[in-house]
Amino acid sequence: MESQIEKQEYNITVYTENQIGLLNRIAIIFSRRKLNIESLNTSPSEVNGIHRFNIVITETEEVVRKVARQLEKQIEVLKVYYNTNADVIWQEMALYKVPTDVIAEQVSVERLLREHGARAVVIRNDYTVFEATGHREETDKLVEVLQQYGLIEFVRSARVAIIKASDGFHSKLKEFEQREPGDEVVENQYLNNRDKVFTM
């Protein structure tokens, strides 16, 4: 019940056809409600021709559910899931540019980087670029640390997330390709969740 009223991070996964203009159609569903998209990633999925959006917002479950339904209503959207962080495996990647001389001089920096699981991607005379992948706190922590060593540039990618309980989209897609609905339909996640809501 708490999750209904309290805001928290939700990972919204949207499976779509690959069509120009769809990004706008999806984005305006958020902007219309004045919801801030914290992270948005688009990528192919395991199924050829099906795209996958990972969207992160901090909101109440109720708002996220309504947004998910509006998203699913769009013609080119096949399916939408939303999950809390506990329900997904997620990662973000970050790049850090640091002056090479500082690193060369200070042995402690190398240790620090190793502790944070960062690895060098490019080493030049003037600068070195490190990459670290992890959760937000982890990549943030490294920013803090590297500030002391003259961090020149920092960038972090959008979040990618995989739903722990998902079986992937291959079998789902078969249902979508079917022209006739099956006899026994319990397909919809909202419908299935209704049991909790039904309070006679």
Partner: peptide
């Protein structure tokens, strides 16, 4: 008569 990603009506339960 069919668009893969579009379900005109939800199935009845």
């Amino acid at each position: 008569d069919h668009v893969r990603s579009y379900k005109p009506k939800p199935e009845i339960r």
